[in-house]
Design a protein around this nucleic acid. Structure first.
Lengths: 342, 342
DNA sequence: TTTAGCACTCGACAATAGAGAGTGCTAACA
DNA sequence: TGTTAGCACTCTCTATTGTCGAGTGCTAAA
């Protein structure tokens, strides 16, 4: 267990390092208002803290920097979210003011304001399509051989996909199929569409139409489509301003990951309702070793919808970022719930 | 006018600089197989070429590097497109093999293969939505106050947008409107929808429905939507491997532009049928001063659809890139024409 | 237990020197 | 007259050295 004084000093060092990005020496700690010990005393404590694994030295005659364990302790025990400034609150609310911009636009705007408030990189996932249910399905022929299939969900989300048409199928038949589908599948979660198709629906269709096999293939293809959630970024280049990323090689490795939506989704996705903080290697991706990721989830009517998150250096302003994320995720949930409740 | 020998030397220098990214000295030029003059002679010629503005010196005791004017001359007079290797042809065709992937997927794949073949960054624009015509329009109510409007084009492209519903409108009325729209607007280019609405259609609607004003607002909003063409990237981080971008500050400026679809679109868009090459400052964007952009257009049935392009250092392998772009753009046009012709 | 004092360590920075690549000029050569 | 060899000169790059300062860790005194 750490003593009161050790906590004080650990807190001071992390605080200092977060703002100045430079190893913190005993002298500069002792100069702080809230600390009244001599540098020598602090040196002893720092030495102990290092032995315990909370601090480390870049080299023998530099100051100390927080270790990953140090940040973890700080985040778990020392930190309290910072209250938002009027400006910050104002900025966030301006996103939600425009009552009828599309959901995707709201989310994109959220990402933007997050990054501009924090000056880190923001990432917003979702909404997760497969949790929503089918509102309507349409299949519109484009040429003799292809059609575009459109799926509308209860949340107003639209998915579409081009599919090959069975040869020789006629418009009436196609219409019949679509009617059956709409009748039988309305309200079914997208994730269950394929299953329903292979069970009940298949049998019904078999009775009514000629081109059964190729039609089933077509529908399967339609329902298979985009499972992955959309990824929205804000301030993608903000992270480059951090001294941690002054090396292009590292930038490249980082951006290679950010370009892959599937990876980003995996990395940021959170199901835990509330704030999640992952520090350095806790992210399990080498290029993120010097980064922390803070995420919060948003929901509609209490149902989990997606994740908003911030990517910054491990040396990130945790209290402020947490405050902002918490506020925004709650506001976003409120807005979406109001708009899309049944 | 340049002499035969000056051309030879200019060509040799650019060639060398393109592959090695280092100032080229007289000695290394004289060592090339196709050149049989002494370094001294070459020095004299280089001095002349510099005076004429085709070469420049980083400093007084380095070799020469091509100037922007040098590249321009090279591109206009010296270069001939390189034939594709079997591998390259194979790579490109693999993109087009999957007969029924969606148009957007084909385009995304094209971007990917382009970047992996050239190891530069590739950018594909389009297809340009507003050139295509309306196939079908739908308005599907999502809640009491909002609906999602869906526009399908003759190319199978789907646009959708959430719009507020006029208060108190009933389903039948909405259906009536949609029917009228479909009847009157089928085949109309998207770009003319708003105009048509304010002229003929408006009058017809006025007769039939109650909530005329708010309905018109709704439709206007629907038709207003996405004018901008989509931007697809491949190998966005490839450009970071170039020594020109070893400086993070520069990377940041470049990526800030690439993040803005509208800017990218402006920068890359080409209407000229064929290959366009923009070198360095010809791009009119400071962060692109050391970059060249090569673009080609693709079309459907001879109608201009979009642009495929490569972003690389000015020191780019022009002959190879031009060859590849030419091949791919033609193949892409062929595929799309086959699929979407009337 | 805390603190002052002091020797020691290490990185950052500037100054210096030497190597190497390349040029430009001059004079000799074909 | 065009080409080439020779050579002094220029400039960058790298390695080396020395100095400075920040910071530590230890010891001994308060």
């Amino acid at each position: 267990m750490l003593t009161e004084r050790q906590l004080l000093i650990l807190n001071a060092i992390i605080d200092d390092y977060i703002t100045h990005a430079e190893p913190v020496g005993s002298r500069s700690v002792s100069k702080r208002e809230d600390i009244e010990f001599s540098p020598a005393t602090i040196r002893n404590e720092m030495s102990d803290l290092e032995e315990l694994g909370f601090l480390e030295k870049p080299h023998s005659s530099a100051g100390r920097i927080p270790s990953q364990k140090g940040y973890r302790y700080y985040v778990d025990h020392l930190l309290s979210p910072k209250k938002l400034t009027k400006n910050e609150i104002h900025g966030i609310q301006s996103v939600f003011r425009d009552r009828f911009s599309e959901m995707e636009q709201v989310i994109q705007q959220s990402a933007k304001i997050l990054s501009s408030l924090t000056s880190y990189t923001s990432i917003v996932l979702g909404p997760e399509v497969f949790e929503s249910t089918l509102k309507q399905i349409q299949i519109i022929p484009i040429s003799h051989e292809s059609a575009v299939a459109i799926i509308v969900t209860d949340m107003g989300h639209v998915e579409n996909q081009t599919v090959p048409l069975p040869e020789g199928i006629n418009i009436n038949e196609l219409e019949k199929v679509v009617n059956i589908l709409n009748e039988k599948l309305k309200g079914v979660p997208l994730i269950h569409l394929r299953h329903k198709l292979s069970t009940e629906i298949g049998k019904v269709l078999e009775k009514y139409i000629d081109h059964y096999d190729s039609m089933i293939t077509l529908l399967n293809q339609t329902f298979l489509s985009q499972q992955s959630e959309k990824v929205f970024f804000g301030g993608k280049t903000n992270i480059l301003a951090q001294p941690e990323f002054h090396d292009v090689e590292r930038v490249k490795r980082l951006f290679n990951i950010l370009e892959e939506d599937a990876l980003v989704s995996k990395l940021f996705r959170s199901d835990y309702k509330g704030i999640t903080i992952k520090i350095g290697q806790e992210n399990r991706f080498e290029p993120f070793d010097d980064c922390s990721v803070i995420t919060a989830t948003y929901s509609v009517d209490g149902k989990h919808m997606g994740t908003v998150g911030i990517l910054g250096p491990t040396r990130m302003e945790y209290p402020r970022v947490i405050g902002i994320l918490d506020y925004l995720s709650k506001d976003l949930s409120k807005l979406l719930s109001a708009r899309y409740q049944k």
